[in-house]
Design a protein around this nucleic acid. Structure first.
Lengths: 352, 352
DNA sequence: TTTAGCACTATGTATCTCCGAGTGCTAAAC
DNA sequence: GTTTAGCACTCGGAGATACATAGTGCTAAA
């Protein structure tokens, strides 16, 4: 356990370093951070903080910088998690009020807003379709051989896909299929879409057998493929002094490349704690290419269903206080709004 | 007009520089590029090529590099536009055969494939909705106050949006609206969706008046907002030696940031020539932040309708021969396939 | 327990030198 | 007239050296 002065010194070093990106000297703490002890006293404490592993020293004649553990201590015990101004609150509110066309848009807007408030790069991932339960399935015949399937989930997520057939489809067939799907699939998870249909595959209704199969195939494909990813403010990161190091810049681009999106999704989805903000500092990240970065994530859920994940990626020297505060506020707003239900309930009594 | 030897020398310099990223010396041309003249002769020619502005010299005691004009001459007159291997052709074909859920997916696949073949960053932009003509409009009541509008265009592009109402909507209203929309809008451009509807706004059908307005609003929003952008292989660019310069790396990230997407869209959409490959070298680009880059674009059209634009962005020292060849081949394939029609024609005789 | 004072140390920067690759030009060769 | 050999010249990059400086660690005194 640290005594008060050491805590104060650690906090001051972290915050000063976050601000200046330069190793912090004992003198700087006295002059800029109002620590009312002599630089010598502070130096003694700094030496001890270094011994317990909370500070690092780039070299003998430089100041100190926080270690990953130091940031961790700061985030866990010293942080001000209400570091958000009235102006920022207003801005967030105005952004979240924007009308959305789709549920996914909400995550997108939150991602953008977060990047604008924090000046870090933010990444958003749309809802994972596979976790959702089916509310309703609609089929629309777009042409004699072209069928559009629209799946609405209980949380309002919409998946649509187009199926092409080699032979003509009749409206009667479509009606039958629509009836079957909605009868069998309501409330079932999207991943299990083909299980309940299988019995029909082997049933007497041979006239739709050859129609159902391609539909299931295509729907399955649509569910598993499409996880929208939004990235905002990548250019902002490049203004940071850490990006003067080409290695860091490179690994950052590697992380954000669309190809590597799946990696990112894995990283973010491993943060499972519902409605809670997770912070991964430097080498706490499982992925080693993230060792020089910190990630702050938040998973937006409603009734246990994934509505999207939002993350901020920045250098370990990140303004945790600001990032966590902003994310906390946005997450609270997202949960308060319950936007999904605003216009669709009370139809069949299934929802309260 | 250049004599044959000068052409050969220019070509060799461009190609050698593309390969090595080092200023090319007269000696290198003799030894590595089999120019069967003495280095002195070559030096004389290089001096002349520099005088006409086709070559640059970083400093007195360095070799030559092509100027923007030099690249331009190379691209226009010296290039081998069939620089594509059997293996690459096979790969492109296999990729384009992938089943697509939506028309947009085609652009996406082409974008990815192009980046993989050329090893440069590629950017794809989906079809511009505003240029499309309406084929059919469907409305689906998802709840008592939630309506989904699906617009199918003549080229197969699908736009869908959700409209929320403050009061309940009946199926009869939806049917009326569906009839109205399809009656009035078939074959009209998407941008003019509200013009033909206006007369109804002032007509006797007051029971749907308050329904049409929010629908038009929301549809207009969906049309104008949603231009999907795909980016592939940004990390590949960072492996290039030019990205050792932090300024170049920075301006590159600036270009590709989602925020600046609209700039990019403008840039790409200014390349209007249908089914033709456009090359913008260095400062030929209107946007000054692109002065160190070259862009090769191709606009995929069918019957005059925009189906998407694909671009390769790389340093001015780009392998134009390979990029142009690959793009040419992909564009040919895209046009040959006419994928859009494969299953939807002959329904009502409107299409041949 | 805190502080003043001082020796010590690593780094960044500036300056200088030296090397070599490459040119431009002149004069000779073809 | 065209090509080539030869050579002086130039510039940038790599290393070496020195210097100034910011910061520490430690000792001894307050």
């Amino acid at each position: 356990m640290l005594d008060d002065r050491k805590k104060k010194i650690l906090q001051a070093i972290v915050e000063e370093y976050i601000e200046t990106a330069e190793p912090v000297s004992s003198k700087a703490l006295v002059e800029k951070r109002n620590i009312n002890y002599s630089s010598a006293t502070i130096r003694n404490d700094m030496a001890e903080l270094e011994k317990i592993g909370l500070l690092d020293k780039p070299h003998t004649s430089a100041g100190r910088i926080p270690s990953a553990q130091g940031y961790r201590y700061y985030v866990d015990k010293l942080i001000n998690s209400n570091d958000i101004s009235m102006k920022e609150i207003k801005y967030i509110q105005s952004q979240l009020e924007t009308k959305v066309n789709q549920i996914e848009d909400l995550t997108k807007i939150a991602t953008t807003t977060l990047s604008e408030i924090t000046h870090y790069t933010s990444v958003g991932i749309g809802p994972k379709a596979s976790e959702q339960n089916i509310q309703e399935v609609k089929f629309i015949l777009l042409g004699s051989r072209l069928l559009m399937a629209i799946i609405l989930t209980e949380t309002g997520l919409i998946k649509e896909t187009i199926i092409k057939f080699n032979e003509d489809i009749t409206q009667e067939q479509v009606d039958t299929i629509t009836y079957l799907f909605n009868n069998k699939l309501h409330g079932k998870p999207l991943t299990q879409i083909d299980k309940p249909m299988e019995e029909y595959m082997h049933s007497e209704m041979s006239n739709i057998l050859n129609v159902i199969k391609p539909i299931l195939e295509q729907i399955n494909k649509a569910i598993n493929e499409d996880v929208p990813v939004y990235m905002e403010g990548a250019d902002k990161s490049f203004e940071l002094p850490e990006f003067k190091s080409l290695d860091i810049a490179k690994s950052f681009v590697n992380i954000l490349d669309t190809d590597k999106t799946k990696q990112m999704i894995d990283i973010l989805n491993s943060s499972n704690n519902e409605d809670e903000i997770n912070v991964y500092i430097g080498d706490e990240n499982v992925d080693k290419s993230l060792k020089d970065f910190s990630i702050v994530t938040f998973k937006h859920k409603e009734k246990g269903k994934d509505l999207g994940t939002i993350a901020i990626i920045g250098p370990t020297r990140m303004d945790y206080s600001k990032v966590i505060s902003a994310m906390k506020y946005i997450s609270k707003q997202l949960n308060k709004d319950k936007l999904l239900e605003s216009g669709e309930d009370d139809e069949d009594g299934k929802k309260k």
